[in-house]
């Protein structure tokens, strides 16, 4: 292959003209995660991991426990600050300091080819994909970020570590801010919305009603919230009444 091939030469000329403009705001967005590396990276993403855990637990626990199970989790796992870890009931296990609700534990582990944040609530185990997990830094994959709350970013230098809770009510999931302010990007595409102390912002999809009670081993079609929307609607529609088999109108009839 000769580099002087005219076709290739033309292609290389086109490629060389490709100029990338750094968009305004890109520097600030990337810097937000690096301004104070440990806390700023840890807590937004750990909170997003907690939110994923909360939603997954709220959805799956009733079905997994089967009929007669205790009431579903209404107060999901909340993200705490590191200072609370020693005093509170939450425990931090493993290299990533994540706090989960009382009686739960979490650790970062290698599952298959990818790192995952594993969490236990009783016997139930769930895992959230993690892009990086070293020391006290947990970074979720983009998909997990969007699934949870989108990227929560505290913008600006010297931003105080905000205190916030992800709470799932009966009909929706909220971010409640108790201290400072939180910038919430609900779909990962920005721009983020500012939520100040004392206010809350509705995020994510409504939490499905506590379904009761699909027994363990029920096929996935029986759990409507696990289906894509189109199939979920179809599943919710009543099945058409079965018609009686048609009778033939031609040909010899049986005589009775």
């Amino acid at each position: 292959m000769d580099a002087n091939d005219p076709q290739l030469e033309a292609a290389e000329r086109i490629l060389a003209q490709h100029y990338v403009e750094v968009p305004p705001g890109a520097r600030v967005r990337v810097a937000a995660a690096l301004t104070r590396p440990t806390p700023l990276i840890t807590w937004p993403y750990a909170a997003a991991a907690m939110a994923v855990a909360a939603v997954v637990l709220a959805i799956r626990l009733p079905a997994l426990l089967g009929p007669g199970a205790p009431a579903p989790i209404t107060a999901p796992l909340a993200a705490e600050r590191p200072a609370h870890l020693a005093a509170g009931p939450a425990r931090a296990v493993g290299p990533a300091q994540v706090a989960v609700g009382p009686g739960s534990r979490a650790e970062v582990d290698e599952i298959g080819p990818r790192t995952a944040l594993r969490m236990w609530q009783g016997d139930l185990q769930i895992s959230v994909p993690v892009l990086r997990a070293e020391q006290s830094v947990v970074v979720l994959t983009r998909q997990a970020k969007i699934q949870a709350l989108g990227a929560m970013t505290c913008l600006g230098a010297g931003c105080p570590a905000p205190a916030f809770t992800v709470r799932a009510d009966d009909d929706a999931t909220f971010v409640e801010v108790t201290e400072g302010e939180v910038w919430v990007d609900t779909d990962g595409r920005g721009p983020p919305r500012r939520v100040v102390a004392g206010r809350r912002l509705r995020v994510g999809r409504p939490v499905p009603p506590p379904l009761a009670a699909a027994p363990v081993g029920t096929p996935p079609e029986a759990n409507w919230w696990t289906l894509p929307e189109r199939r979920r609607c179809a599943a919710a529609r009543p099945a058409p009444a079965r018609r009686a088999p048609r009778r033939l109108t031609c040909g010899p009839r049986a005589t009775s």
């Binding site: 990338v20 750094v22 968009p23 890109a26 990276i41 990086r132 983009r142 990962g188």
Partner: peptide, 27 residues
Amino acid sequence: VYRMVAHLLGPGAGQADVEDITQQVFM
């Protein structure tokens, strides 16, 4: 670094992709 990442990913990459990877680079 931003430009280099954008060049290596090509014009198919969105701004969010480039920012994500640039952030990973600095981390």
